[in-house]
Each structure stands twice: as structure tokens, then as C-alpha cells.
Design a protein around this nucleic acid. Sequence first.
DNA 1: ATGAAAGCGCTAACAC
DNA 2: GTGTTAGCGCTTTCAT
Lengths: 331, 331
Amino acid sequence: MAQRATITQVAQRAGVSVASASRALNGLTSATATVEAVRAAARELGYIPDATARSLKLGRTLQLAYAVADIGNPVYVEMMGAIQEVVAGAGYRLLVANTGDAAGTVDLVTSLQRGYADGMVLSPLRVTDELVEAIAQSPVPVVVLGRMPEAAAVDTVAPDSPGGVALAVAHLRERGARRIAFVNGPFDTTPGRVRGTAFTDAAGADAITVAATDFTAVAGEAVAHELLSRPDRPDAVLAANDLLAIGVLHAADQLGLQTPGDLAVVGVDDTDLGKLFRPSLTSVNLGAPERGRRAAELLLARLQDPGRKPQQIVVPASLSVRRSSDGKGSR
Amino acid sequence: MAQRATITQVAQRAGVSVASASRALNGLTSATATVEAVRAAARELGYIPDATARSLKLGRTLQLAYAVADIGNPVYVEMMGAIQEVVAGAGYRLLVANTGDAAGTVDLVTSLQRGYADGMVLSPLRVTDELVEAIAQSPVPVVVLGRMPEAAAVDTVAPDSPGGVALAVAHLRERGARRIAFVNGPFDTTPGRVRGTAFTDAAGADAITVAATDFTAVAGEAVAHELLSRPDRPDAVLAANDLLAIGVLHAADQLGLQTPGDLAVVGVDDTDLGKLFRPSLTSVNLGAPERGRRAAELLLARLQDPGRKPQQIVVPASLSVRRSSDGKGSR
DNA sequence: ATGAAAGCGCTAACAC
DNA sequence: GTGTTAGCGCTTTCAT
């Protein structure tokens, strides 16, 4: 653990003032001789400017935060990777925080007022009034991954869940499905509500919908076990995400149902997990990496121009057909 | 985006000096009346202390960094979760950086000299001389997840890979395996070298070892396809991690081999991925969350006492037996 | 082109 | 117990 040199030491060694040293280092107007002397001194001392002091003076930290409710879900990791790439390219570091429940999310947004980050990309599971208020009060821009109330006037990047769900339902119908059921996550989450509504719209109000206690494979298996044991069991299931869908596949397997013969299964998010699973999982691709990228770009754009109009981006959906819904799909 | 109040404004409103305001807010000696006045003023102004200014004065940022070579590998996400939990409990924020290759890792460690974090947990894939040097030069403590040269004198938390590999080999032998092969990742990585050596030690020098181009399922499938097509094909495979193991399962499936009947497969890392896969994957549990936790604790301990002796922790391994190696295991 | 000096917001001596 | 003052390391006027 070595000691750090300050710009004062560099200036002394170069025989100039700190102001000149700063200018020379930052490429502002200064004589060639000065630049060389300062550079040499900096090199000899192993000088690296202090980020904190710089931040205090500049009024910005060159850090951005990514807050996510459940980092255990691979789709958020995919987004994080994309965000990291974009912000790193713009010279920002990325802070990651796992917010957990709704209260944790609000706390985290509120703590932005400490000024430790210049902005935030937020992926909330539930949007409460408190959260909307906290975002409005934030001293730095916040971009929300997901839907927000119109009045919030905040930059958002949302998936086209309704479009994606419609694609999945149409695909299953085309494959001959008669009774399509929806395995949802908790309805009080934004994805749960949006995807649940989209399914009812696409499949009809009489289509069966059940809700798991959370968006995990274990919860999906539990609820699917019950669903698939019914006398009027469905011949196709759309699950609200890939983890739930894998739970459904497990339940089907345990009940001796063939996939896709007896039961076609489709997930949402098109994660690597679904591609690796056997049978490989047909899944609605909601463009997670692209959403992450767009959100990061939106944040950078607002940092550049705080006055710009809030933008609501919707990323289109597609369907990745695989074996779980179609014997002819890739394994 | 609201405006932020400074401690000067709070002091003015409360009718005291900034020093008194600071003391009152931080719970140092001050009259009850002062405390109340300051608290009231702070509340009214919505005052929240600025993290950057505080850092500059204190000489610490209350931020810790976690640098990882490949955030796409779920085992690192598990570690991140554990680290985040520990450091958050101690009042630190967690910065996450995806370092990519070896050069990126060195750059990242070097950039610690900017002072944006008070310490770092590092999960390198390859340990180069440059990296050892960069860690030695770091102005803040670095804890390495994995093995380091003795001379490095740095805190480390390593898995007991040899022990884990031995457990897996013994298990496979006990299950009747005659020809056990090892599907490794790149041998020039630390995990590749350590696990490869451990396998040779446990299974004998004549045991087959092949190396995939990286630690992914796709690479594992490619190399396993070749391995399993040999006339002297193995009846059991140990893979260097779960992703590779799933690649092996895919290859076996494609070649019409039954698991575990024709081929028993064991992975390493015991990730959720392996638990969800069908057949569920027997895997060497190297205690990823515990390693993450221990590393974070080590970092906090060194922050507390910079003079303490570097500690090398080894976390014990265990074996999670599932279907891919044992028909009687849980699905 | 350069140096002196101010100041970002905060905390910690130090004197009263 | 409180106010005055210095200063963390840096950038940026403002004179010169």
C-alpha cells in the first residue's frame, strides 16, 4: 500500500505553481516546456489525481448507480452488463445496489441526495407513490427501467410486454393450443400487472391465470403443480418469466407430461438459462441488454442536457422459438 | 431534481456556527437546545450531508469495489450478493466493475490510486506479475478471491478445489466409474490450473483431460462432443465448472448417451443453474457465497487494522449429489 | 502563459 | 459548549 502524491508535490518538483501544474495536466493553455516539466514530475512521482477532491471541485462524481430489486434474476445481470459497458465508455464508474423490497428502493433513491452519484438507472419491481415522489425529489437524474405513471415525467425504457405476450399467445395458438394458461408472478409488481393484463387481453378473459408468490423457479413449480393437476388442465402455459417457466417444466416433468407434446411452455425474458435448459425454452425476448443500453444512453443524454424533454422508450419484443413449444425448434 | 442544502445554510437557520451544526448532527458534545435547533433546521431544509465533501475531509469514501473478470458467470453474482450484504451492513456502498481480460484487471487495480474506493475485493481469472505488482502498489487494501503467490503477502480467500475435486472423483469411483475424464477450462487461468492439477492428482496421471476454450456451456459442449465420440470414451466426466458440465450434458444428449446411465457428469460451483437443470447436476460446492462473505469481512478487518498480518483463508468444499451422477439423487 | 488566491462542503483542532 | 480557523486536493477565476 503505497503513498499517493498530490498535485502540490508535482508542482514543486516541476518548479511551477499548482495552477500551472493543473493546467498542464489537463491540457489547457500552457507553454510546452511547462507541460514537459510537469509531465515528467508527475511520472516520477507516480501522480494520479484524487477522484474525491476532483469531484468536490467539479460538482460531479463521474459515478452512476444501478439499483435493482433482485440481482439474483439473471435478466437484471444482463441489463447490468449492458449498462456498465455504456457508462464505462463515457468515463463513468458504475455503482450497483441490490434494493430488495419497495422500501429499500425508496431509501436508495433518497440517498442519492448524498451526492455520491451523478445519476441512476433504476429497475423497480413495484412503483409506489413514495418512489415517484423520491424520484421527483432527486437532485440527479433517474432513468427508470419499466413503466411509470404519466405524471411522473421521467425518462423510462420499457419492454413491449403486451406485444411480446401477444406474440407468444399467437404462436401457441398456431401450434394448436386450445387451452392456454398464464403463470404469473405477484400481481402487485409492475411486470406482474402489465404481463397479466396483456395475457388477458391476448388470450381472452376466460383464460386461466394463476400467480406464483414470486418470480422464481421454485414458486413457479409449486403453482404449476396445482395448475397441471386440474381436470381441465391447460395444453399450453405462458409464464411471466423464464424462471417461472422452468418451474412449470419441472412440474410437468414430475406429473409425467411430455413437453411440448402434452404441454407447450413459453417463458419471458429469453435468458441464457432458457437456452441452456433441456428442452430448450421458447421465450419472449424483451430485449434486456438493449433496454439496459438505452437506459444508460438516456441517462448520459440527460446529464449532457438536463433540460431535455423526458423520453419514454419502448423496446420491441420478439419471440425465440425453441423446443419447449415446438418439436421442430432447435434443441 | 431538487436543490440541496449545505451545512452552512443549516447553521445559519439554526443560528449557530457551522462547527456547532456539524457537532450537533454527528452527535458530539453540544447543548440540548443546540441539537434541537440544528435538527429542526436540517429537517426543514431537507439537509443531507454531501458524501464527496465528507470523503475529502475524512480521507475515506465509504465505498468498496468488487472487480470480477466475468459477471456473466452466475457464481460471481452469488459472490457479489454476499459481498454486498456484508459491506452494506458496515455502511459501505459497493462499486462493481467487470474487468474482462487480464490487462483490464490490472488497469482497474491501478485506478484504485484515484482514491474512489477504500478497498477492493478482486476475483481475477489470471494472476500475472503485473497484477501482483499493481496490488502491492495499491494505496488501499485489496483482498483476492483465489490463490496468490506466497510472496504477495495479501489477504486471500480461496476454495479448497483440490479437496472438492477429490470428493467428486471418489464419488464417481464409488458409483462404479472406470474411466473418468476432466473437462477443464483454459489452463492458463488460476481455476483451470488448480483444478486441472487437482484432478490429475486425484484420478491419476493417465486420466484423460481436455480443455475448453473458456468456462462456458458452449465451449464445454464443443470439447465434450469430441471427447465423447472417442472409441475409448469415458463413463464419467468431471467438469471444471457448472457451465462446462451443462455443455457436457448437452453433448451427451446429442450423442444419445443416457445420464447418468452411460455417462455420469459432475460440475463445480454448485450454482442454481445446476440445481434447475434436468437431470439436476451433481456439483462440487466450493462455498461461493461464503467465500464472498469471508473476503468482505477480511477487507473490513484490514480497514480497521491495516497492520494486521495478511490472512489466507481456505473455505472447505462439499459435494452436492444429484441426478446427473446418481439415479437415486433428487431430480 | 503563469501565479496567487478563492472555494467546493465538510470536520477537527484549538482557543475561549 | 461554542465559534474561529485551517485544510482535505483539486480546478478556476483574476490579475499580471
